[in-house]
Design a protein around this nucleic acid. Structure first.
Lengths: 138, 138, 138, 138
DNA sequence: GTGGTCTAGACCACA
DNA sequence: GTGGTCTAGACCACT
């Protein structure tokens, strides 16, 4: 419904089990995508209502995330048009990006450990995701 | 006092900027360390009080994390003695285990890809999950 | 407000003289009511605050009980909405289930026999588990 | 090692999962057995050391239970000889007995419910404990 | 000295 | 209004 200038739709993705507050996940995804380059100045974000419907959350939660990003100068709201990435550069993209990477990975390791997997198994699976390996297991 | 029985120190770290609840960070670090192999069955964890002092948090917060891990069967506590990693009874069948591993990894890769991280960055972070972060202490 | 969706009121009771921790009594009453059929999947439990007021205990104590039940998969909580009995996913094989039932019952009978209770007394109490006790409120 | 006058040994039995403090379980078993008639005035109890060894608990815990029973006038300690049930009648055996029955049963129901059994299944098993009934199950 | 239970009360996240 | 996180601090159970 809202497409970015390069033709790819930007969409949020929630993880209900991560322990990270929803509004925080939304903020992180915008700043992260900015750092990664998948969002750029001028791109439009999903409307508050659309995001709320897509994610099955309360519009207030989306609004809160957008408001905080606006306060930080990352977003700009144009009444009656939508919400867009502002032209101003984000101040510390590297630190943010590193924090996100770190969290993503430690979260991944935490889940794997809780399920009894080792790093070795994970790496093997990452390198060869479609191999069927019913043996090699005890 | 600061070393476990096998001579390796286990210590928690907190990231005050992540938005993840403290008790949840503790839980994730235990299960993550299990996957990484830096914690193994029988190892003693820091005492509730010691961890609370080290992290400058309330003992109740540590206890809450430990209790949740105990309910999940990952820890065993011995009143008056301490808290230990329990011997895992992972009696899951191989097929289901493989399916879960595959799911876990593809989820992770999808999430990381959406955030614009390369596999190289991920692998580097997995190998040294706590490196490179300027301020992650409370 | 004091009735669940199916019209039957569910209420906790405390026995201050039993020596059993309050949060544990709450947990046991939920699981016990599941066995007795007075609670079923989808039923709403008293809100944390309401139960705390009714029992004259701290809301944190109620929340602790609810949380433990949630970790065990017996409850589901919805932020801002309430706490509900979850639909059970008991995918246990029949043989193991029967073995567990048998173990549970013979344990119970052994314990009761050692304490000098007759089967008649036990059956009567099972049919009306909360009858006949002069002072069991806090 | 210590036998009662009617030839049957009195032995304690602990339940680590019930949530009831150990010292309290010991007290309850003495008062319960008195009410049930399996212990009578003059009977000797296990020595503190013997009970501690048998139950794999700390002697202090046994001592505490015995001390409280002595304060209540239920036990008498004879230096160098052992610990015996005193001749004085316990004040409210019925209420105590009813409390124990109630706790025993609600504990039983709580465990059964947590494991997904219904009262019907329990009653069936109690009435016919050795029947194999692999069918009738979904 | 270890973990365990409970309270009182503040502030946050979400519908 | 609902549940969720955290603190400070008291007192208990056990080794």
């Amino acid at each position: 419904m809202s497409t970015t200038r390069n033709g790819a739709a930007f969409a949020f993705r929630l993880d209900a089990d991560s322990g990270v507050p929803v509004y925080r996940q939304l903020i992180d995804q915008v700043t992260g995508s900015l750092a990664a380059g998948s969002l750029a100045a001028g791109n439009q974000l999903p409307t508050v209502r659309q995001a709320a419907v897509d994610l099955a959350i309360n519009p207030n939660t989306v609004m809160r995330a957008y408001r905080e990003l606006e306060i930080r100068g990352i977003l700009e709201t144009q009444q009656g048009t939508g919400t867009f990435i502002s032209r101003q550069k984000s101040k510390r993209p590297d630190a943010e990006r590193q924090r996100q990477l770190s969290q993503l990975v430690s979260d991944f390791l935490a889940r794997a450990g809780a399920a009894g997997f080792t790093v070795e198994e994970l790496l093997e699976q990452i390198h060869d995701p479609y191999a069927d390996r019913p043996k090699n297991r005890r």
